[in-house]
């Protein structure tokens, strides 16, 4: 394979982002789009910086992050646990597999009204929705990773005197780690998306709520700010998970 110099890739990658901003600026400057509907990019970004330092906006971010992390954490614990259990035990597999087949393609967001009725309008219903949505990719990739562990790794460990139940933690879990982390990565992006949507549909705080409030009063600038914020949050969290991933998988090829 030919390796392209990194700087060329960076320039190539920045080009479309710069282009989007340029077209955006062009649309506003030329008067094709009125500033009320499409505020100029400079205005939006300065508004973002101005908001980021305010206490109230930080509170909104904190509310969103709390729900996001709580839901994601529940999804990781349940997903990894159930995935490993389903791969290890044919009996659990026989129960979990058909249920997952039915529930995975079900649009979880449709359950949101039911969750609101059962758990109220507070944190509980949103966290549950995030967990329900992030659960399946984590569960499925854990199951996939755990059920494709090289048989001879397990044999090697058994011959060295590892009891069967310890094999699960000492061999299957670490061997499935690349797959588990891929699932977590998908799950994390989903968590970002879902928590924002849940806050948009009904909420009194959080980034999604900021967007809805701005939309009600037709404040176009304030509609862009939470969207850019969630995009940045997604990038930062993805980067953090990437760092965790390359640490945990330092021994694995192509990690």
């Amino acid at each position: 394979m030919i390796s392209r110099p990194l700087s060329v890739n960076v320039i190539l990658g920045l080009a479309p982002i710069v282009l989007v901003i340029a077209v955006w600026q062009g649309l506003v400057s030329s008067g094709l789009a009125p500033a009320v509907l499409l505020p100029p990019p400079g205005f939006v970004f300065s508004r973002l910086l101005q908001q980021l330092v305010t206490w109230t906006f930080q509170q909104e971010i904190a509310a969103t992050l709390t729900r996001l992390f709580a839901g994601f954490a529940i999804a990781v614990v349940l997903g990894v646990g159930m995935g490993i259990a389903a791969a290890a035990s044919p009996a659990i597999n026989a129960v979990v597999r058909p249920i997952v087949r039915v529930l995975a393609p079900l649009p979880k967001v449709a359950l949101y009204p039911a969750l609101l009725l059962l758990l109220g309008f507070g944190h509980g219903s949103k966290i549950t929705l995030v967990a329900a949505d992030a659960l399946f990719p984590i569960l499925l990739s854990t199951y996939y990773g755990a059920s494709t562990v090289e048989q001879k790794l397990i044999w090697s460990a058994m011959a060295a005197g590892t009891p069967r139940y310890e094999i699960l933690f000492k061999i299957v879990l670490p061997a499935a780690m690349p797959s588990i982390l891929t699932g977590c990565r998908i799950g994390l992006v989903i968590s970002c998306i879902v928590v924002f949507l849940a806050e948009m549909i009904t909420s009194t705080d959080g980034l999604g709520h900021v967007l809805v409030t701005a939309a009600r009063t037709f404040q176009a600038v304030d509609m862009f700010v939470p969207l850019i914020t969630i995009s940045l949050l997604g990038l930062i969290l993805n980067g953090l998970l990437g760092a965790v991933r390359s640490y945990l998988l330092r021994g694995f090829p192509e990690a």
């Binding site: 090289e150 001879k152 790794l153 044999w155 090697s156 460990a157 058994m158 011959a159 060295a160 005197g161 061999i171 670490p174 061997a175 780690m177 998988l249 021994g251 694995f252 090829p253």
Partner: peptide, 18 residues
């Protein structure tokens, strides 16, 4: 079953990558 009195060495090495 397997036991530490019999030690396997496989063609695929089967080393623990982690």
């Amino acid at each position: 079953g397997p036991g530490p009195d019999r030690g396997p060495v496989f063609q695929e090495f089967a080393l623990f990558p982690w």
